[in-house]
């Protein structure tokens, strides 16, 4: 088994080198590689590695779905994921993302005068204990919390989304700097690709909305002028 792993280790050199450079920031206009081409490149992976990649992709897909879920549903999904995931890095990716979700949910709930969330992850108990404290006393581990609080208070959802993606991006980029030509670097590339994709689509829909508003304004002015 170890011998097989040593032989397959060289496979990642080709795959990693075939992926375009991931920019240092996700605030770019388009993803470095299209989804179809990325899927094509991932065919270089062995079946067992492809299974792990599918787990990550399924989680990230689930994470970006905007549908409202109950705390219980999220708890069930988190437990199911943690039972099925054996790869330590994938667990870390999922845990960090869920931590960000839990903290954000707590910030929103507190702002609306609700009780502490049940939530999932490592910070649930800490948040409950520090529910009345400023920023739940987690700024040392999550320095983005005060900035998100500020953006929530100014009703700026796009800025909130940007800050949350920035926090996740920074965490995963720091991790990616530790790996070179390994399976972990492939997983972290995929995770960051997903952030760039999410942001570019957000920008795209924002641009479309802006265009619609401008179009309506222009048509309104036209009708007004005609009338």
């Amino acid at each position: 088994m170890k011998r097989m792993r040593m032989l397959s280790a060289t496979e990642y050199y080709m795959l990693v080198a075939s992926l375009p450079h991931m920019p240092r920031t996700f605030l770019v206009e388009r993803v470095p590689i299209s989804q179809s081409r990325l899927a094509e490149r991932l065919k270089l992976l062995s079946p067992s590695d492809a299974d792990v990649v599918s787990q990550v992709q399924r989680f990230l897909q689930w994470d970006r779905q905007p549908t409202a879920r109950s705390d219980q549903e999220i708890q069930q999904e988190y437990d199911r994921l943690m039972q099925s995931i054996k790869n330590l890095l994938v667990r870390r990716i999922v845990e960090y993302r869920m931590d960000v979700r839990t903290i954000t949910s707590a910030l929103r709930r507190r702002r609306l005068g609700m009780t502490a969330p049940t939530g999932v992850g490592r910070w649930v108990d800490h948040i409950r204990k520090n529910w009345d404290q400023d920023n739940f006393r987690i700024v040392r581990d999550h320095p983005w919390v005060p900035l998100v609080c500020k953006s929530l208070s100014t009703n700026d959802p796009l800025e909130v989304e940007r800050l949350l993606l920035q926090a996740t991006w920074a965490e995963w980029t720091n991790l990616a700097d530790q790996y070179h030509f390994t399976f972990e670097s492939v997983l972290l590339y995929l995770s960051r690709w997903e952030i760039v994709d999410r942001w570019t689509r957000l920008n795209e829909s924002q641009g479309r909305n802006r265009f619609d508003i401008l179009l309506k304004e222009a048509l309104g002015e036209q009708q007004h002028a005609n009338w």
Binding site: T10, Y13, A17, S18, L19, P20, F181
Partner: peptide, 13 residues
């Protein structure tokens, strides 16, 4: 082998 595979991967890009 490692450098060669990296070169093959880079050729795709």
């Amino acid at each position: 082998a490692r450098a060669g595979q990296a070169a093959c991967g880079a050729l795709l890009d």
